[in-house]
């Protein structure tokens, strides 16, 4: 009698478990984008004793805009920097795990780090034009690759500047310093410059936080237009912007990924306490 009771309990448990597993599988399956552009697996970053990123598992869908959200200091910038190995520049950072970009492992690749970095265009909080003319900013990447063909270079300079809608504004002053451009224009120049090395991915760390609303809108519109060709990862603190841009939202807190999914799902039905709190604080 006892045994049968036990059995049924176990059976029930098993059914529940099955159900949970199935649910888990389904939700996971939904989250896993087919054909991810970036796959991060078990990524850990330490700064001496400070565990900055904790077992990060993440798949970033191709040709979509992924918005990275989370409170200040939670490790968003560190995550972006691990992707293009700018973490190498900090000796105190220790990085472990795997990052695959189009199935190529890049975290342990000892080989050509500049080549890895070229796969990604970087846009930072503030524009950092190189201390040379607008034209030379645009040709820097070509020169590094040893491309000297003037026709090809000029074609590309024009193409990329047009891509970010800056061509008309700068075509008459290509050889003057970018310092004279507005911050918004400089930011677009930096974006165009990043595109010259033909990246697949664009990493943007609060790209509009220094910009006025109009320039921010231009950048946002550019991202939406560009996602056909690029996989875009944007860090932002502006929830409205996240709403406007995101195809996929990733929420992090204290070095961990808490939720990932469509903006509708995350913003309307946040599952975790952390995200709920973040959304309340943000609104």
């Amino acid at each position: 009698m006892i045994i049968t009771l036990n059995d049924t309990i176990m059976k029930e448990e098993k059914i529940q478990l099955d159900f949970a597993e199935k649910l888990d599988f389904e939700t996971k399956n939904k989250q896993i984008p087919e054909n991810p552009a970036v796959t991060i697996s078990n990524l850990n970053v330490w700064a001496s004793k400070h565990h900055i990123l904790k077992n990060v598992e993440l798949k970033i869908p191709k040709n979509k805009i992924t918005v990275l959200l989370g409170p200040s200091g939670c490790g968003k910038t560190t995550l972006l920097k691990s992707l293009n190995r700018l973490t190498d520049l900090d000796k105190e950072l220790y990085v472990s795990g795997n990052i695959f970009i189009n199935d190529e492992e890049i975290l342990h690749a000892k080989k050509d780090i500049p080549e890895i970095r070229r796969k990604m265009g970087l846009l930072s909080q503030k524009p950092y034009p190189l201390p040379v003319s607008i034209y030379k900013n645009m040709t820097y990447g070509f020169k590094l690759k040893g491309i000297r063909d003037k026709k090809l270079i000029n074609y590309n300079v024009e193409l990329r500047l047009k891509e970010v809608g800056l061509w008309e504004e700068v075509k008459d002053r290509l050889h003057s310093s970018p310092d004279k451009l507005s911050i918004g224009q400089q930011q677009r120049l930096c974006l165009a410059r990043g595109l010259t090395v033909k990246p697949h991915i664009i990493l943007a760390d609060e790209p509009t936080s220094a910009l006025d609303p109009t320039s921010s809108k231009i950048i946002e519109d550019l991202f939406k237009k560009m996602k056909n060709q690029y996989t875009i990862i944007v860090v932002t603190h502006v929830l409205r912007q996240a709403h406007r841009l995101a195809d996929n939202v990733v929420f992090m807190s204290d070095g961990e990924i808490f939720e990932q999914g469509s903006p509708n799902k995350l913003f309307k039905n946040p599952e975790t306490q952390e995200l709920k709190k973040y959304l309340v604080d943000g609104n």
Partner: peptide, 11 residues
């Protein structure tokens, strides 16, 4: 940021 800009272009 300027270093990072330069490095991210592959230098």
């Amino acid at each position: 940021g300027l270093y990072e800009a330069s490095f991210s272009l592959g230098s």
